[in-house]
């Protein structure tokens, strides 16, 4: 029951965050790249002012999987590192916290690129 609730919350919150992105695409003609940059910066900001934490606690993957969650991870990483090591944490915290996602994307991207060929759409 608890599991179903968690999945449902992830679906609803994650879906809503994506739908807002689609709304911006259709309304403003912003390119996906600009929206992604906007999303990650928005994630950093919302997390910094303490708004994203509660959403993340509530929705789990529904908040951590969208790119805003990436921004949230950067912020929480920076905050924790500053608490632990002081000023140098400003520069180490963000990428430490997000290293897994970035390294995975770099490595899998390279691997797939070496193995697979792109194809034209039908």
């Amino acid at each position: 029951m608890n599991l179903m609730m968690n999945l449902l919350k992830a679906f609803l919150v994650g879906g809503a965050i994506c739908a807002i992105g689609e709304f911006l695409v259709l309304k403003t003609k912003l390119t996906p790249a600009r929206i992604l940059v906007g999303y990650i910066v928005a994630g950093v900001f919302l997390s910094a002012v303490g708004l994203y934490g509660p959403i993340a606690d509530f929705a789990g993957a529904g908040a951590s999987i969208p790119l805003t969650g990436f921004g949230h991870a950067l912020t929480t990483g920076v905050r924790r590192a500053i608490q632990e090591v002081g000023f140098i944490g400003v520069f180490t915290g963000g990428l430490t916290q997000t290293a897994a996602g970035i390294s995975a994307a770099v490595f899998f991207g390279t691997l797939i690129a070496l193995v697979c060929k792109p194809r034209p759409k039908a």
């Binding site: 689609e22 995975a104 994307a105």
Partner: peptide, 27 residues
């Protein structure tokens, strides 16, 4: 991505796709 738009590129899947696809394209 063509079907879902932001539904595919806003999650971290979009970040991954944005790295894998040019890497494949430009080998």
């Amino acid at each position: 991505g063509q079907y879902a738009g932001a539904g595919a590129f806003v999650p971290i899947s979009g970040f991954a796709n944005a790295m894998v696809s040019p890497a494949m394209e430009f080998t």
